[in-house]
């Protein structure tokens, strides 16, 4: 469980997050949605401490991360798994080395044990026979999956994904979404996913936070989103012809 209390963040006077209050629940895929530039990445990075927040508080299972010393933060961070918007794979390391990285750093397992784990998580994201390729040698979708594999290698308690399926075709996107949801439920992880993809929203949105220009505009789930009562959210949800057609067919 990750709890946000009145989280605020500004960059040189310009407010990007204007007081976010929400509880992201354990074992659920929590989504942060919103238009490009609405503050999703900033919020996610604020939660994990890559940005220091200006006001408010962030708690990880009641542990006050915001007012914690760096040394203690590092401990909690070892419970994090993060998939960056751009993948952020170590480009001088192979797929296998990327996934094994945190195992090398934080466990004393033998190489065989680590390799077992690496192959297990790679299989989990449907990647086989790519162990010795470099990130530049695999496709964008595969890179995303390696990033997910790397994020879950150490059995994280908290999983963060910044637009895990952006730039992918809808089918691959859904595969990745479902993968994230399955992992979340299987290991009872608190997962937060940033997305502006309505496919993801309707597929995996257990709990959804809609950001509008840095404001918390609406909170609900994937079933409630079509009747949110928020004009801004409706504009977002029904932005495409496809969604409008579906809506009209329902009427």
């Amino acid at each position: 469980m990750i709890e946000l209390k009145n989280v605020r963040k500004a960059f040189s006077g310009r407010e990007v997050l204007k007081g976010i209050n929400i509880v992201f629940e354990k074992g659920k895929t929590n989504l942060i949605i919103g238009q490009s530039g609405s503050g999703k990445t900033v919020l996610l990075k604020s939660i994990i401490g890559l940005h220091e927040i200006d006001d408010g508080q962030i708690l990880f299972d009641n542990r006050d991360f915001t007012h914690m010393r760096n040394r203690d933060r590092k401990k909690i961070r070892q419970e994090f798994g993060m998939v960056f918007q751009g993948g952020a794979l170590f480009d001088s390391a192979t797929v296998e080395e990327n996934v094994m990285f945190s195992l090398n750093m934080f466990t004393d397992k033998t190489y065989e044990e680590k390799l077992d784990r690496v192959n297990f998580v790679l299989k989990r994201v449907n990647l086989v026979n790519v162990n010795h390729l470099f990130p530049s040698e695999i496709s964008g979708g595969m890179q995303k999956r390696v990033a997910i594999a790397r994020a879950i290698a150490l059995n994280p308690r908290y999983l963060f994904c910044d637009e895990p399926n952006s730039g992918l075709d809808p089918k691959t996107g859904i595969v990745i979404d479902n993968l994230i949801r399955e992992i979340t439920e299987e290991y009872n992880i608190t997962t937060i996913v940033n997305t502006h993809d309505m496919n993801s929203v309707t597929e995996i949105g257990d709990k959804i936070l809609y950001l509008y220009l840095g404001e918390q505009n609406w909170v609900g789930n994937k079933d409630e989103i079509f009747n949110s009562g928020s004009e801004q959210l409706d504009n977002f949800v029904f932005a495409t012809t496809l969604m409008r057609k579906i809506k009209n067919n329902f009427k």
Binding site: K45, I48, L50, K74, K75, I76, R77, Q78, F80, M82, F84, Q85, G86, A88, L89, F90, D91, S92, F101, S102, M105, F106
Partner: peptide
């Protein structure tokens, strides 16, 4: 350029998030 590239492609952030100095 090696470290700078790691910075702009968020590889350094990835290290930090893993709890690595």
């Amino acid at each position: 350029s090696e470290i700078g590239t790691m910075r702009v492609t968020e590889q350094i952030d990835a290290l930090e998030i893993m709890g690595i100095n």
